[in-house]
Structure formats: structure tokens, C-alpha cells
Design a protein around this nucleic acid. Structure first.
Lengths: 243, 243
DNA sequence: CGCTAGATTGATAAAGGTCAATCATTGTGG
DNA sequence: CCACAATGATTGACCTTTATCAATCTAGCG
């Protein structure tokens, strides 16, 4: 019932109400579903502020006082950390339906900025915790969501643990494919190669070389910088598993 | 107030009531605190089953149906995943006060087994969600906890992203030090070198060599396999930061 | 249309993985 | 309690792979 709660109005209202996508604890279809009921969406909507940001706009920086949590509505943001050697580590790319800004000890631990023009909901942290106390069910859905993001983080850990650049890139493309969920062989890569590298824990050159190799072996073609097309699905999957 | 809720009874009852350690969203002292009130501990205690497991006992395996969540009371467990190449990836070591078994889509996504003799609380998932619906505050504390574990996962990501084995080992020791929180220079390393390697994304040989180098440079001494003593704190911290 | 940041390609070197051998530790059975 | 077996830890030699540095090319944007 969680699953279909908003199915009716999905096409009508989805553009204006907070999304929250994840898998619940209990068995469902396997795909991510909208976690919020109409009522919860509406209530969240009353305390949330819609913010429209241009591409490459900072949302907050690590260490600053945490006043709000955020939900991505449209667009794309990256969660990152600037390391002391000057390099940057990208911890996550967040798509519509993702939550960020759950602080620890009152301060944000990571930095966040947009990659594309992005619409986000900003919700004051006090209002959220208040609402959680009133609506345990709403809170449970946020718990699902954070659990889901923990799994995503673990998936990135698995990717980064691999040593071969080609394998990492392939697994990254799989991740993007899963997110887009269109069953064509085309994968959109909305972020820059540099940010992909920072996410994969590789140098930009290594990512470039891996892509070149995938192209040379005719496993993936790249019609343009931001699109990949899987040509040889069996070998693609084989590389993803071969670790 | 969250912070001191159980301070009085800490020494009396801590051995028999579920612990839950984390940082809340709002500013606190910086150290992890017991998240549960006496009342919540007592209520959890009524639906939880205490399980005492010997060392190297499986708790559950990835893919199996999820019926319960677990809280570590004493001992140590590892969360891991067996990869298709036969290798094993360790995602986390869990200490007293840590939660595991929050499933996604009804099945456990990782495997868990004990490393030492370990006491865990097992709580049926239905009972937990019921209790969450009744007690939004309790649930909020679980949300803190999962958020906290997300941060831990991100910290491991940062460690594994490093290229140098010595740096990874040093950061790992820092993590252990933070958990033990005794302000001596001694760090207990309760797990095997092999498991450390699997956690750090290194070969066992690389961990061994890194340890040898730290010993040769007189930065850390290892009185026995499972104890480290920081000899040169400035250089130790410098290595941890130098990435 | 030109400029600038990003992407690609090549050569080199550093670092960990792998394989193999030895040493230490732990746990077991006599 | 001791001896032994088996597992885990360490060390060395070699090799694969990516980081790094430098140069060139491309694409996006004013």
C-alpha cells in the first residue's frame, strides 16, 4: 500500500510535491517507489521552501551550522568533501527524490552543490523533527530513505574497492542506468568526467583511458560526452561482475 | 537532555539494556551518547531477545529473508559481502551500541558474523516498526543512528580512496581509537590482519608492509598483534591528514 | 568567433597486487 | 601440560596498473 499510495496523482502533482524515493524494509517490487502519501506530501509542502538554483551553485559547505534538510525535486547535485591535499572526493550524486543535509552533531559534514539547474525543497530541521514526532509513519519513510542511501554508499564502496579503472567505470554506468530506469541501452551521464573521476577515486586520465578502452573493444559507445550506449551487454555485465 | 537521560543508571543497568550510541542531529558534546531513555530501553528490552554467540558465528547471510534487526551489546561483529571473484569485502566492524540488519526490500543485503564472543539483541522487524509508529521519539533516535552509520560508511570511503597503504592503516587506527575513547596512546585491534585488509581494500601483504613501515619509522609500535601504541603523535596525525 | 576549462593521449615512475616461502600464533588432541 | 597441526602473518621478488607530468585537442560559453 505504501507503494501505490500516490499512483493516482503521480502525473498531476509530481512536479510540485516533495518526492522521496527508496525501497522500504519489507518486500516490494524491487524498484524504488515514492515513499510519501498524498497527505504527507501536502504537509511537507506547507513547511518546505522551494529553491531554484542555477548549475554549479553551492547549497552548503561542510562544517557550517545545519538549519535545514533538503529534498532534490529536479536536477542533480553532488555531495563532496574537500580533502587536505587539495583534491576533492565526491561521495554521491543525488537525483530527484533524494534527501540530503541530515546533520550530525548540528553541523553539516559534507559540502553540497548543484551540477545542473536544480529545484530543491528546503525544510527547517526543527519543523522536520516536530513533524516526525507527530507522524511516526512519515518518519519511518525517512528512515527507509536514509537506509537506502546507506546502501548506495556501500555500493560506491564496492566500486571504489576495485582496482581496475574499466571495472569501476562499468559499475558506475550500471548505477546510472539503474537510476534512469529506461530500458534502452542508452545511459545519460549528466556530470563531467572530472566529477566521475572524483566519485570513482580515479584520476581524470584513468577515467578517460577506461572509456577509450570500452569504446575500442566495442563494448560501449559514447555518441557524445554525456551519453553512453551499451553495445555488448554480455561483456558489459561480465566486466561488472568480474571482481 | 538526550545526552544525560540514562547517565544515572549507566553503571547499574548498562549490561542488560539495549544500548544505542550515536550523535544526534542537533549540537551536543561531539562524542557519541546513549540515545535511548530508560523507558525506551526497558520497552525495547521486553520485545528483544538476547542472543549470545561464540566467536566466528554467522548471524545472517546476504539475500536471506529479513525478520529482525539487531543491536550489538558486547563483543564485535563484521558486516561483509562475498564478491564474485571469491574475495570478501568488509563494510563495517560493529561495536556495542551499533545497529544492523535494517533490510532493504525485505532481504538482508550484507552478511554478518561475529569476530569475538558477542551478545546481541534481536528484535523482530514487525515489533520494531510497530513501536516506531507508537513512539516517534524512539524512531528519531534510530534515524540518528542510521545517519551516524552513513557517516561511518563515508569515512571508510574516504579511507579506501587513499592510494597509500600506510595512510589507510593510520586512518583505520584513528577510527579504532575514536571508538575506544580511552585517551592513552594504546589502541586495541580486536580483528585479524586479514579482516583489516578486507576492510581497507588492500591485500593482507600490503597491510603487513604498512605496519612494518610504521614500526620501522618509530611512529607506531605493535607490542602484540592486537595492540598498537602511537609513539609519534604529530607524524601520525600528519600522515592521516596528508591526502 | 575566440577563449577557457575540460577531455584526451603519451611517457614515465611509484605503489600495491600476486606468487612463493618462511615464520608466528592459535587451537586441538594426546 | 605439551606437541603438533593448521591457520594467519610476514617478508622478498617480480609484475601489473594507475598516478603523475606534459602536451594536445575539444567543447561549451560569453
Amino acid at each position: 500500500m505504501l507503494k501505490n499510495a500516490t499512483a493516482d496523482r503521480k502525473n498531476v502533482d509530481q512536479g510540485r510535491q516533495p518526492l522521496l524515493l527508496a525501497n522500504p524494509f519489507t518486500p516490494g517490487g524491487g524498484n524504488m517507489v515514492q515513499l510519501l502519501t498524498d497527505k504527507q506530501q501536502a504537509e511537507l509542502g506547507t513547511i518546505a521552501t522551494e529553491v531554484l538554483l542555477r548549475a554549479r551553485a553551492p547549497v552548503y559547505t561542510a562544517g557550517s551550522l545545519a538549519a535545514s534538510i533538503y529534498i532534490v525535486q529536479t536536477g542533480l547535485v553532488k555531495v563532496f568533501r574537500d580533502l587536505s591535499n587539495g583534491r576533492q572526493q565526491v561521495l554521491a550524486f543525488l537525483f530527484p527524490g533524494d534527501v540530503f543535509g541530515l546533520a550530525e552533531d548540528g553541523r553539516y559534514v559534507n559540502s553540497v552543490e548543484t551540477l545542473l539547474q536544480t529545484m530543491i525543497y528546503r525544510i527547517p530541521i526543527d519543523a522536520v523533527t516536530d513533524m516526525f514526532r507527530r507522524d511516526g509513519d512519515l518518519e519511518l519513510r525517512f528512515l527507509y530513505k536514509v537506509t537506502h542511501e546507506l546502501r548506495e554508499a556501500q555500493r560506491r564502496e564496492t566500486i571504489v574497492t576495485r582496482r581496475d579503472a574499466v571495472g569501476r567505470v562499468v559499475m558506475f554506468l550500471q548505477t546510472l542506468e539503474r537510476r534512469n530506469a529506461n530500458n534502452s541501452a542508452c545511459v545519460e551521464i549528466p556530470m563531467s568526467r572530472t566529477d566521475v573521476a572524483r566519485y570513482l577515486g580515479l584520476s581524470a586520465e584513468a577515467v578517460s583511458r577506461a572509456i577509450t578502452q570500452l569504446r575500442r573493444d566495442e563494448i560501449v559507445s559514447f555518441p557524445c560526452l554525456h551519453v553512453a550506449r551499451i553495445l555488448n551487454r554480455p561483456r558489459f555485465d561480465q566486466i561488472a561482475l568480474a571482481m
